[in-house]
Design a binder for these strands. Sequence first.
DNA 1: GCATAGCACTCTCGTACAGAGAGTGCTAAC
DNA 2: GTTAGCACTCTCTGTACGAGAGTGCTATGC
Lengths: 345, 345
Amino acid sequence: MQELTDRQKTLLLLLIRDYIETAQPVGSKRLVEHYHLDLSPATIRNEMAALTEMGYLRQPHTSAGRVPSEDGYRYFVSQMMQDAELPRAVQHTIAHQFHQSRADMDQWMTLAASILAHQSQGVSMITAPHAEQARYKHVELISTQGRQVLMVLVMVGGEVSQQILTLAEPVTQERLSQTATRLNGLLAGLAVDAISALATRSDALDQDILILITQEMRRASESNSGEIYTDGLTNVLSEPEFSGSDDARRALKIFEEPATLQDLLARSTTNSNIGGLQVLIGGEGGWEELRQCSMVIARYGVPGMATGTLGVLGPMRMSYARTIPTVRFVAGLLSDLVNDTIVGE
Amino acid sequence: MQELTDRQKTLLLLLIRDYIETAQPVGSKRLVEHYHLDLSPATIRNEMAALTEMGYLRQPHTSAGRVPSEDGYRYFVSQMMQDAELPRAVQHTIAHQFHQSRADMDQWMTLAASILAHQSQGVSMITAPHAEQARYKHVELISTQGRQVLMVLVMVGGEVSQQILTLAEPVTQERLSQTATRLNGLLAGLAVDAISALATRSDALDQDILILITQEMRRASESNSGEIYTDGLTNVLSEPEFSGSDDARRALKIFEEPATLQDLLARSTTNSNIGGLQVLIGGEGGWEELRQCSMVIARYGVPGMATGTLGVLGPMRMSYARTIPTVRFVAGLLSDLVNDTIVGE
DNA sequence: GCATAGCACTCTCGTACAGAGAGTGCTAAC
DNA sequence: GTTAGCACTCTCTGTACGAGAGTGCTATGC
């Protein structure tokens, strides 16, 4: 593919920016008048024809203005990626909100989702951080009634799982506490595999609980585990390109099926690093339902310990200039939080 | 208001059922042909004119069929309420799904929301059960790093709250465990008010934790506390009356703001009893955004101990015949579950 | 007195069509 | 290389019109 001249670059960027704002095909005249270009519409038309030829622009029909193609957006985004940083003031506001919130993962995730959605005017999605290989930290056993026991399992990194188990016969709280203490001494810091290797050697109660513990830890280790936080679902409905068709419904449906959404996030970030940002334009990656959408996705956390994914979904026409730096900044913030939670183990 | 003749009742019910199915205004001819009535269209027209006069029907325009008015729906629903019961087979399927799920509140709520949404083809919403006055059951303190402590607070009824607190200075896990044991002995079964009355009399660590405990319990006691589970958000988007306008967006926006949704559920059920079902038609209760919608709402749980709210929102044209019995049945199921969880405390 | 057939009336919806407007590509001139 | 001019294409808007559906009213039949 041929190199773009400086003027072509400028025009392409202007046009895309204009289209993102207005959602209207952009014509040569509008470009000249609106941006005070020292050129005539005819010249612009020539350039636009060239850009169309090269695949960066597209015409909805013969006599409409131009609209960016997917390649056009890609070029635009590649320009954005470098210098894009969130204004200091916004950074401070966001950081402040985090410091003011309740200090638990659940709140942080909810807050992060809300901030992402609000800043980007798109749909945000975040997975809670989790370790590839869960490690045991602590268990508590609390008797709730005769044979039912509430097990609270804490893993290194702060992940917590609650589960009720029903025992074969009633057990006193005292005995439960003893068991918990014993297990805590025995298992502290161990990974799932090590724990399952321990296997059979104690009494029936221990046995039941060990099984449940490994089961929960395996669940926590699965890449598709954990809650997904989303926000801004209705934002996408206000976009003009979605009103009137049921494309929006099909896209939102993805957000109603946690398994699908997990899959989407997992597949989209397999080969991306912490700190690295990925922009998927026009449903890249084979998501038919998202053909009209783009996603900005990043991983966060501490590699090898606990990581998660966050991202924003919007129309292809989304404001990359706002979304990209926001995603990057929030990813950084969450990485710091995860780091703080892990350090000192 | 004048009494309806039997024939008028039949016609009204038929017409509403037809409209609910087709979303099209129903004319006299269609009514006769489709339901093999032994009357001529002209007669039906006379009756329909009477029903319109009485306020049960409405004409979109002079020459369209009739559409139910809100009063019409109310009449229809009042007929539904009595005999409506879910088919045995469906009851069994649902009950089966509950027994197969993981045995914790979170899973149950998610499942219930999913079932409600699926059965009714509307948007479901459920609040987790919570006590009007939270009572203490158990606390665990787990050191995560130097000065940060994870507190897991369990309340009577099974509500669990996790919170991280940062201490002024590092404390050993041993000391934390001792403190937890002491508190558990001291506070077991107490209500918030009793605990805050205890007040100052021990060391700084106890103090900090007590404050946090009462704080969390107060939060749990608030009527607007707790997570809300929803499902089926996209269902409403496929309804013809919402496609093309942004009414749907405004309605769905309510579901994105937990506080508003809490408020909606709380206000809609203030004077309803466990087991009682409430049907709000056309945004009754002053919700402008829901003017086109209806809600079927019920409370569940054990009065005085732990209760919650569940409901379905759909277009005014929703299938009451399916939704009402489903809501009633699921409310019963959840009440049983709550009861099982509490009994034996 | 209730039910019905007939009929004129009203309103929506789809199609067709014309004119305005916007934007283009091309050519010729600067 | 840039620009003015121009014919062309396509969308959009508004209007007209007929088909279709449904109504209300009136006169007639049982």
